[in-house]
Design a protein around this nucleic acid. Structure first.
Lengths: 110, 110
DNA sequence: ATATTTAATCGCAATATTACGATTAAATAT
DNA sequence: ATATTTAATCGTAATATTGCGATTAAATAT
């Protein structure tokens, strides 16, 4: 085993889980926040920001990219990363909606 | 290794990552959504909802509980779970803030 | 008292994640 | 042409996650 049974769940449940998974490591949160805050975006800068080895940071960047949270473009000898604006807004809505679903607080079953 | 280097990151980064981790499996999203939607909350009902074995579901419930997302209380022979309202609102704010940080879209570095 | 129901925990196997050093590939300097 | 810089990928080790069946513990029925 060790592999999640995605077929049991809805597309939306799997999507929320997949984005949450991409955000489930502090280094990846640090990377995203660095991209949100700063104008710098080259890979080397992000390696500094994480404090992890270059290869490890590169792996984290790959995961964020696969999830659609960031995108990268080659700039000469550097690679520049930034937030994928379109997906970011989509994911933002998805999570806002997920968290907003707790409202009708009239159920007192516990 | 295989163990995240939490000491490199801020408390906030670790907290966001920890909550995201708790939400990083579709079964756990399904459980939370079931608790948000329905009045039913006993463990057995949640086992049905996930479609996973009782022991597996119990494990997922434990993770959600450890993260502070849900709480459980014994009701006779049953255990009733529900959303931890106080933490939920805290986490909601935390994620809203995190996703809202993308606004000043004037940086065109990529 | 004994049986039944419910849910947590244990033990295990399969797989995934995290991390690093070493290597590779591509672009730019010298 | 050769060296240097930058970042991706490979290989590997340590650890974590996912899932299930079996067992255990606690409450309630019979």
């Amino acid at each position: 085993m060790g592999v999640a049974k995605k077929e049991l769940f809805t597309k939306e449940q799997n999507q929320i889980a997949a984005i949450a998974k991409a955000l489930s490591h502090p280094a990846r949160i640090a990377i995203v926040q660095a991209l949100l805050k700063s104008d710098a975006c080259v890979c080397g800068y992000l390696v500094e920001q994480t404090g992890l080895a270059q290869s490890t940071t590169s792996q984290h960047l790959k995961e964020l990219k696969n999830a659609g949270i960031i995108k990268g473009s080659v700039e000469g000898v550097n690679v520049c990363y930034c937030i994928d604006e379109k997906n970011w807004n989509k994911y933002k809505q998805l999570f806002n909606k997920f968290f907003a679903a707790f409202e009708n607080t009239d159920k007192q079953c516990c």
